[in-house]
Simulated assay, not measured.
Amino acid sequence: MKLLHWFSLSLCVCVNAENNVVWRESGENVTLRCSSAGCSSSIEGYDGMYLYHDHKERRQVLYYHLNEGGTDQITLTPSFKDRTQAGGSLKNLTATISKLTVKDSGFYSCVFLKFKGRDVQCSVYTLFVRGAAQCSNSTEALCALCDEKSPSLVLIIVAACTIGTLLTIIFILLVVPRVRRWTSSRRSMAGVLHQVSNDNVYEVMTKNAAETALVGPHDCA
């Protein structure tokens, strides 16, 4: 079951090119950067930005917005306020979270938004914090990822990506040529059948014309 969770998470990391994987030990710090450079589209005209943490549920880490005076303001949620330092502008904001624990492991995403409801997700991070933790059944997989005694997830990620690449190469080298040959043979067979059909029609028409010529007008009378 643990290997299944590892493979699933590895696949998510592999297919997401914008995902930045970060490893830390318990008690260390991590700095996450929310930058417009990590967005797939322009954020011109956007009004604010959320930094979210997704583990068992989505939690807000901070909210960047403009106050009534039009100046920048960063609001930290209570669970991160005492151990998070944040600063910068809307297009380039950094947040440093200190005294990390296993519970801080998960996905972090920067979501830029407009007040009219439009938003765009940028700069996605996957944070693994290694250390001991009490795990329930629902969090066993994530704790196992962060346990120092568990196998290295880096090797599993590399293996998953390598296997995926090899399967793609095998498919291209073996399956695709066979499909092409089958398609080509079907076309060739269809051409042969069409030619045989035309020849039969021509032979019947020729035979009928010859019989008509032999009978002649006097025979008909």
Rank of each mutant, 00 (worst) to 15 (best):
C146H: 02
C143V: 15
Q73W: 14
F107R: 03
G117D: 02
A132K: 11
K91D: 07
G164R: 01
L90F: 10
G70V: 07
S123V: 01
V154G: 02
G131C: 03
G117A: 02
A160E: 10
I74R: 10
A141G: 13
P78T: 08
K91P: 01
T96L: 11
K103H: 12
C146E: 04
C110R: 01
I157E: 11
A132G: 06
T84M: 04
F112D: 00
V158R: 05
L153Q: 09
K81P: 12
T101A: 12
V124K: 11
Y108D: 01
C146P: 02
L142C: 13
P151C: 11
R130C: 08
T77P: 12
D119I: 05
N92I: 00
S105Q: 05
K91M: 10
S79I: 13
C161G: 05
S123P: 01
G131M: 04
N137C: 02
D119L: 02
L155R: 15
G70W: 09
R130H: 14
R130F: 10
L113N: 06
S98R: 08
R118K: 08
A144E: 14
G164P: 00
K81H: 15
K91I: 06
L155K: 11
G106E: 08
T84H: 05
D147S: 11
D72H: 13
L127V: 03
F115S: 13
G69Q: 14
V124Y: 07
